[in-house]
Structures are given as C-alpha cells and as structure tokens.
Design a protein around this nucleic acid. Sequence first.
RNA 1: GGGCGGUUAGCUCAGCGGUAGAGCACCGGCCUUACACGCCGGCUGUCACAGGUUCGAGCCCUGUACCGCCCACCA
Length: 842
Amino acid sequence: MSVPEKPALEGLETKWQSRWDADATYAFDRTQSRADVYSIDTPPPTVSGSLHVGHVFSYTHTDIVARYQRMRGKAVFYPMGWDDNGLPTERRVQNYYGVRCDPSVPFDPNFTPPAEPPKPPLAVSRPNFVALCTTLTVEDEKIFEHLWRHLGLSVDWSMTYATISPVSRRISQLAFLRLLAKGQSYQLEAPTLWDIDFRTAVAQAELEDREMPGAYHRIAFAREDGAGAVEIDTTRPELIPACVALVAHPDDTRYQPLFGKHVITPLFGVPVPVRPHPLADPEKGTGIAMICTFGDLTDVVWWRELSLPVRAIIQANGTLKPIAWGSAGFPSIDAAAAQARYDTMANLTAARARARIVELLKETAALVGDIRPITHHVKFYEKGDRPLEIVTSRQWFVKTMDHRGALIDRGRAMRWFPAHMQTRYENWVNGLNGDWCISRQRFFGVPFPVWYKVRDDGTTDHDARLVPDEAQLPIDPSTDHPAGYREEQRGKPGGFVGDPDIMDTWATSSLSPFIVCGWERDQDLWARTFPMDLRPQAHDIIRTWLFSTVLRAHLELNSLPWTNAAISGWVLDPDRKKMSKSKGNVVTPMGLLEEHGSDAVRYWAAKGGPGVDTAFDAGQMKVGRRLAIKLLNASKFVLTKITPIGPVTEPLDRAMLRQLDDVVRQATEALQAYDYAAALRVTEAFFWGFCDDYIELVKRRRGRDDAGAASANGAAQTALSVMLRLFAPVLPFVTEEVWSWWQPGSVHRSAWPTSAELAGAGDDAHAYTRASEITAAIRQQRSERKLGFSVPVRVTLGGVDRALWPAIARDLLEGNNVVGDPQIDFDAPALTAAIEPVAADA
RNA sequence: GGGCGGUUAGCUCAGCGGUAGAGCACCGGCCUUACACGCCGGCUGUCACAGGUUCGAGCCCUGUACCGCCCACCA
C-alpha cells in the first residue's frame, strides 16, 4: 500500500503510457480462439490532415469499448491504421515541399527536396514524388501516434498498418485481381464524372452538391422543316456544339408533333432529332431540353437509352477541344460557319466559352429574351474547387448494381448502434446509380497490377491484359514488367505498357479487415480475428467506407466484414454547426489534453452517446477533471485507514453494496449495447453518492477499531475496487494510478466487476437510499437555520421507517453530528426533520 | 422533392406509459478528522405546437412548425 500524501493528476499520462508500453498491457494475445477475441476495425485517420477534436471524440468511444471487452476477458484485437494513400497526401506533399508530380520527369536517385518550398513548384518524377509522400507520412504518423498514446488509446502499437504499405498494396492488388478473375471488376470506356483540376475520375460516393449561381439562357432551335423554332432553356449554352438531340416527355402534347422530326442547332447547323423520354420534365424550363454529350448524368441516361451518338467537346483539363466541323462526328449544314464560330471558343474553359457563345448567340439572334440568373445545385468532387464535368475515359469499375439486394441484406444482418443508421445505409444502396469507379488518374496510391500488350502499330490493346502472378504482388506496372517481356519492350510495338492509373483510396480502405486480420497472409491470425466484431466510424462515411467494406467482404468472402457497426456523431460548435476546421485547429487536441488532462477530455467524449452529435464543451471537461481528482482523494481516504477489515455486517454497508450491485448490472447492460454514456452516468451518480453520503455517514464508525469499522473498511474497499473498474474504460489514467496504490497488476487487465463479487451483501438497497434521504432532510434544516455542520444539534424526525431505523440510526446520528436521542414520529405521512442547536457548552 | 434524427430548466443533456431529472451556470451558507480542484442548501420548466389513444402521455398515434444531417435536384 502506497498512497501519496498529495495525489495529483499531473504527469499521469506520461507515467502510465510508458508503463503500459513497457508491460505490453494492451498486447493482443493471438493464442486465443475466435470466440475469445474481440476484434475492432479501427478507422485509419488521414495522416495528411490534422487530428481534431472530432477524432478525439470518436476514437475515445472505441477505446472505451475496447477496454470494456478486454476487462470482460476478451483478447482485444485493436490495431491502428494510417490512411496515407491518395490525394490528401499528394496535396500535403505538394504544399509542404513545393513540388508537383510530373511523370515525364526522369527519376533522380540523388534528389533532395528544396529547403524552402519554391514558387512555382518544382516538377519531380513520380518515384521521387512517391518517396517524398512516404517520408512525410512517416513523420505525420509519429505525431498521430504520440497524440493517441497521450489520449490513452489501448491500441497494440506493434500492429499499426498504413494504407500505402507493401502489405496494403499487395492486399489491394490481390483483391482486385480476384475480382477481375470473377468478372466482378471490369474496364470500360464510358462517360465518367471527372474533376478537371485533379484530372481524375471520381466516384458517386465522393460527390457533393454545392449551390452555385447560374443562368437560364433561352435558345431557339430552327425546325428542319422550316415550320418555326423550338425554344429550350439551358444553363450551359457552351455545350450547344455537343448537342445530339432534344427531348420532351412522351405525354407532352406541346411537343408530341415534333417527335421523330429534326431541328437545327444554332450557330453550328447540326441537325438533331427530337425524341420522347419519360425523364424529361414538362415543368422544367420550356418542357423540352437539349441533350449534350455530356452536360450531366441525365444526359448520360438519355444518351444511352436513346442510342444517341457521342459529340464530346470537354477535354480532361476542362477546356473545349478543337473540332473539325463537317466531319463524320460533327456534321453541319454550314461547316464553314460552324468552324469559324467554334474556333473562337476552342481551348477556352467552359466558363469562358459560355461567355463567348452568348456573344455569338446574340449576334445570330438565337438567344431569346434575357438571360435569367438563378441559383442551382451543381455536382462537385468533395475535394474539388470547380464543378465536375463528364468526360469519356477508360476506367476500372467494381460491380455494385448487381448486388444491391444482397448488400441490403448484409446491412440487415449486422447490428447498428444507433439502429437508425441502418436506414442511411439502405438509402445509399438504393440510390446507387452506377457501378463503383475505382480508378483514379493520380500518382500516390496503389497501382492497378495490369499491363496491356502494345500492338505492332504502337497502339495499346486494352483487351490484351497481362496480369502478374499473385506471388509477385505488390507490383508497380510503371517500373515492373510482365512475365515473358523485357523492360526494353515497354511502350514499344509488340511490347507492353503498364496501366497508368491508381486505385481510389476507398478501394484500399474497404479492405481494412482484410489487411489487419491477415487475409492471404496469416491464415492463423485470420481465423482468430475475422469476421471482426466492431466497425466504429462516423456517419458521414457510411456511403464510402462502410458501404465499400461490406461490398468487398460480400464479393470476396461471401461474409459480413463485422457483426456490429457503431456510428459516432460529430462534434459541434456551441452554435450547433459542425466544428469547422479553422476552429478545430484553434482548439488543438494536444492542447486540450494538456489543459484538462486526458481523462477529463475522455469524460466529455464519453458523455456523447452513440451516434449523437455533441457540442464541444470545455465545461464538461472541467467536470471530468473534478471527477478524476475526486477519485484520487476519495481513494486516498478509503485506503489511508484499511484496518481493521472484516466481514461486511453493518446494514448500511450491506445496503450500499447492494445498490452498487444494481449499478454494475446497469453499467454492464449499457456497455453491452455500446451505450458507454449511460454506463458512465450510473457509475458516476453512484460514486458521488458514495463520497457525499456513504463516506460521510460511516467515517466516524470507520475511525474506531471494532467490528463496525471492519465492516465499513471491507465495504468501502470492495466498493472502491468495483468503482475503479467501472470507471477504468473512461478514465484509464486515474483509475490505473489508484489501482497501483493497493492492487497488483493493471486495472485494465483486471476482471470487469460482476454481481458475484457483491453477492452476500444485503438483499435490499433501501437502507442506503433512505439514509441519504434522511441525511438530506437534516442538511436542509441546517442550511435553512444557518447551522454549520460543526454545530451539534438535536433532531426531531417524522416519517422514518420503523423497522429500518434501528439498523441505521447510529450511522445517521454520528454522520450528521446529531447528539442525544431523536424524537421520532414513525407514523408521519412524509419524511420530515427539525433540528435544534445544542450549545457547545451544554 | 424523398428519408433519418432532434425540439425537456439560462446552457449541455438524461428520462421514452404512472407524482418533471442531472450537471453546469446563478443565489445563499460552510475549513465538517480525503478533497476549498472541496462540501451543504436553494431558485429555475404551458417537456416546440395542434389534435387523438389511454384511468393516466415529454414518453404511444396523426398532423404542423423549426433545427441538423443524408439522398435526389445542373434543361
């Protein structure tokens, strides 16, 4: 027993995190079988970003569950991952070093980044760029790990993984090749959502809508038969050269006579048909729309379902491509005029081309009336700055549309906390409008493990795929060459060429259970950890990470990846808005932990229930800090006088333990349902009552050296042991500190408390609650009559339970500084108390 | 437009069929053999609104309003 004279919270984080590390307190015991393992699919944070309060919030929730399960006797498999793959890392490296990746620059083995980021950025080769990404992410990961350790995450730090690591690249490539072999992945040249700044395809899950100013332009299309004009409204007049048809609703009597007839596009003189399609909305604009290849996703649907030609004009960089009018693709009744007009638009960005074409339209009187400004929603890549275009390109897809029903069923087979988050998942699956595009035209990521044969004429034969043997993975097709070829044949007629693309970051993240559990790498580990028990994550990535993980496990393993999904909420500003990045950076997580203490910050986080958006509240952290300090002091008090100790015989002691038994039961039930907030509430309420009422009532009895003192000591120590363990998942540092004063080993490896430990205590907690009520009544009288505790008083009581009174009378009288025998009216209808001071000299 | 949450004391939230709760804040008191980083006491509510079910409704049903989020919406 070694209780400090002045216990304090300062320094506990450093002390215990290094001790836990040295003792391997959280090491995963991989000798356990699946039934005795609890495995957690931890979200790998993006290391190129900065951690903010939201991370601290949600990772604390997961850690509470991990600690609880560990105390329940499970071998907790709780690895931490780093998401260092993909665009965010590229951006960070570009800004940090002042470089940009240019694949045409040759590799420089002696390259070192400039001391100061140069302007303009220095162009570097892809291998040099990737090396910089790797260097910087390693540094970022150290900072992240330091923060997580300080927060007290009970991660097994020997098991970290990174989404760009060789293991992750191998798993990504292997899983991709398996999909390809099964026909679940395919390559297609098709219209795809495209970010013109990043010059990459993006997936449906990465879209967001933003409100943008726009304008309706009413455009007249002359009828081919000369019988007047048809007017359409468009916000994108610059796409008139890409127009392939007009479309109206089949039931729209205004336009029915036009179906099958042709109109002539203004300026360019292209005859295009008027076609019916049910997606056309008679209420929008003039009720008839122009179909361009491609202005939006509806255009793609119309183009496909009406078998229209392609007349694409937007290039990968967002400018209009030069076109030869009068050719097969771009027919015109006046090719010369079309060419002259179009040449003034070619190579302009869409926005500039729009301004230019408005001038042309005005000159030719094809613009009807005024341009009407509107605000409308436009699709953006979530990380992008300009609206997405639709560009036809060759991309890799994973089949999702075929599996929607099965994926809904998978969602129903898992348990969701909170349950309503399942609806979001179903909404997403039901709203899918195409297969998952997994290829990105970027540099830092997992390459597709594919080469193509080069024909004798030097063109690439995308149908003649060459794939590596699984044993060779991971490979980089830009530096490795396929079996049966020599490196010199790269890009040469009769040779080969590597697939230039990398995978979407979610194509790797979706394999996190595969990566951590040892799929196709460590069969023994796999058998002990998969399917996993828990996927904790935030609700904003249900459509990406959660969905894609379910998909991959379904396609590859015909299994759920995990049985439980715990969805955490967001941290909100006090004004109820999502905590913004700027504000999140002002309040840095490390600053918070240092100011309030890790336990205090964890306490605040634990108060936010599963899936509940929670206000950032430093006040709650202060409360948490007070709780931790109270634990130190109350424990010191209980443990400072520990003898005599004996059987718990006193009714008040027995009733207290009986009450605690209820608390254990409630806290356990709550944690089983992932409701750590409810578990904390009941534990905390009991603890404060224990301190303020129980300890106060028995401290004098405890001061003696008789059987009553032995009972009080026995009960107090039992209660303390139980409470420390109930608090341990939320407050790992202070509970460990106190535990170390009098118990061997770590509280975090001790057994979660059970009713069995408290069995034999009283069979009724009534004496405990009643004693608190009587005490409160006496205290109220003292307060009203301004008689401090140190003034001895006589008491008159009413409504006290006749049978109960003798058992608790002594504790109550001593504990409230009451002298003499109280007068009691046992039959009074309600509890009453009246006091009279006793003169000190009386 | 479709969907999901939420609306309870000044603030942050719990309660989800049986007499309205906690913490914070505020006010008053107290150095009481752990803790003044403490302790005691007090004040505060047409439980968003309107109907309905029920002996009884923050709690169940219907509708409305507002807040947040997800999805759809580029003619």
